[in-house]
Design a protein around this nucleic acid. Structure first.
Lengths: 191, 191
DNA sequence: TTAATAATACGCAACGGTGCGTCTCGCTGA
DNA sequence: TCAGCGAGACGCACCGTTGCGTATTATTAA
């Protein structure tokens, strides 16, 4: 009962292997996308036995989820700026994402993340919070309310959800991703 | 040149087989979801050779796309009502979708559609237009403008995108789908 | 008119290939 | 001493392709 921490014999988990596996997942994900990422490919690139992967992760989506949790799957250049002007900041951020999505590889990255999210709820939540910037958008909207740039009675949580959702819809279903579309979208949300 | 319609020799395409295949796709999609739907399973259930499938469709996603195009993948009970009151109609419609998503099977259906959309842009567009009800939402919003229930200078296309996007985000990332959440979301969109 | 021929789609079965997830092997190191 | 390790063989499922023999159809020739 309780914690029996010290009574384990034998070798502990190899942190080196773990890192090599997660590095390989990140690399393969960006090169080939989620659908054609394979456990065997990851094991080969990481120089690791398959069993070492299956010992610690049960599915491909679990593996990708842990990568996402550690922020290895995409660059953090997509951070939401904060210049004090809420509208400009959002347009800038949405514009950056649109620019990424105009590049086929970048769009593939986004759709792969969405595909992974459909396979693993944890990824979906993390995507919503991290990549989608849901939390940061939410925080930024809240800050905008405090700065008087947004009416205090606007439902910021729902607006954030709608904004991020529109990005996802554009990623999977097409729709304009030109710079002026960022302006239209943000203005529609901010009304 | 032009249309040489009648000058083909040999047996024409079997409409019976085509229907059997699309029926099987629809059935398998709803039973097992997009990820674990297989061509071989479809062929077996349809009583058809695999080659008959590969002759007319090149990929699994193409197959699913055609099913979606013909409206066989989900019931049409999700149609957007039109009682004349825009807000009530939208809340009602979003509420129906939320109800579907609260059922694990229904949510699986939606996430499977999203997964299929990440594999096939055509599916994405159709999803956006048909299931997402993008067109009908758009039409309904436009009608609302004409009825004076929405300011004429609201960007209805972007609002529609945001609303449908929020539904998708909730499907993949969680988020509240209780009846009152439908009210919050619709009111956020309509401001 | 009628029979032969050519073109095409069909169901079926088998193929090599790929990746899955499980399962042993020795080996290493705490 | 013994759990984790790299390696890799195994059976399985499904992929996409190919060849077979048969049906169905339009064209052509008798």
């Amino acid at each position: 009962m309780g914690a029996m921490l010290s009574s384990r014999r034998g070798a502990p988990r190899s942190e080196k292997s773990r890192q090599a596996i997660l590095d390989a997942v990140s690399s393969q994900f960006q090169e080939r996308g989620y659908a054609s990422l394979t456990i065997e490919g990851v094991a080969a690139q990481a120089g690791v036995g398959k069993q070492t992967i299956y010992r610690w992760w049960s599915t491909k989506s679990d593996l990708v989820a842990e990568c996402l949790l550690e922020g290895r799957l995409f660059p953090d250049r997509l951070s939401l700026p904060d210049t004090g002007d809420l509208r400009i900041d959002l347009i800038d951020w949405v514009g950056q994402i649109f620019e990424l999505m105009r590049d086929p590889a970048g769009r593939g990255l986004v759709t792969s993340l969405i595909a992974a999210a459909t396979a693993n709820e944890q990824i979906g939540q993390r995507l919503r919070e991290t990549l989608g910037g849901h939390q940061s958008v939410l925080a930024r909207l809240t800050a905008g309310v405090e700065a008087g740039q947004l009416s205090p009675n606007r439902p910021v949580a729902e607006l954030s959800e709608a904004l991020v959702g529109a990005l996802i819809l554009k990623a999977i279903g097409g729709g304009g991703t030109e710079p002026q579309d960022a302006v239209l979208l943000v203005d529609a949300i901010l009304s």
